[in-house]
Design a protein around this nucleic acid. Structure first.
Length: 151
DNA sequence: GCCAACGTTGGC
DNA sequence: GCCAACGTTGGC
């Protein structure tokens, strides 16, 4: 089993939205690296940190898990959708996603500012300068350390 | 709103 | 294949 972190802007889709939906196709990803993680490496049951970005208090707010095999992102084929990509052919889909299933909200949010102060997380991908990936792997040691903080 | 970092596009 | 221009991300 592997560990991951996914970012979402809470104004667009928050951990509460995921809780309400229970299972949500993680659509709209239009970055090859992020897509490749979903397509090639995610397995059903992998554990995932849910991170709020571009907001007043960015940080890890909850946990979800991979809940499907990879499959084509339907929003890429829909001209009405925000994430429509005319270059994605249904016969040869360019964008691939998995479903995410709500697991729990953390009892206390672990803020980005707090994460940055932890020497144990100095190598964490999320904290690297210039990082913009919206889906990234998390090391087991990092996962366990953060779960320790979360209590 | 600003700006640094990064990914993508497109001309050549 | 190079690289400048442009658009996006995301913290502050």
């Amino acid at each position: 089993m592997q560990y991951w972190l996914i970012k979402s802007e809470p104004d667009a889709f928050s951990i509460d939205d995921l809780q309400a939906a229970n299972v949500e196709p993680w659509d709209g990803i239009r970055n090859y690296q992020a897509r490749n993680f979903m397509r090639d490496q995610m397995k059903v049951g992998d554990q995932v940190f849910f991170y709020h970005s571009s907001c007043a208090a960015p940080g890890i707010v909850g946990i979800c898990e991979v809940a499907s095999e990879p499959y084509p992102d339907p929003t890429a084929f829909d001209p009405e959708a925000n994430y429509y990509d005319p270059k994605s052919d249904p016969d040869k889909p360019k964008w691939i996603l998995v479903d995410m299933k709500f697991v729990k909200k953390l009892e206390q949010v672990i803020s980005l500012a707090e994460l940055k102060t932890m020497p144990e997380l100095a190598e964490m991908r999320l904290l690297k300068k210039g990082n913009r990936l919206s889906i990234m792997p998390v090391e087991k040691s990092e996962w366990e350390f953060i779960m320790g903080i979360a209590g």
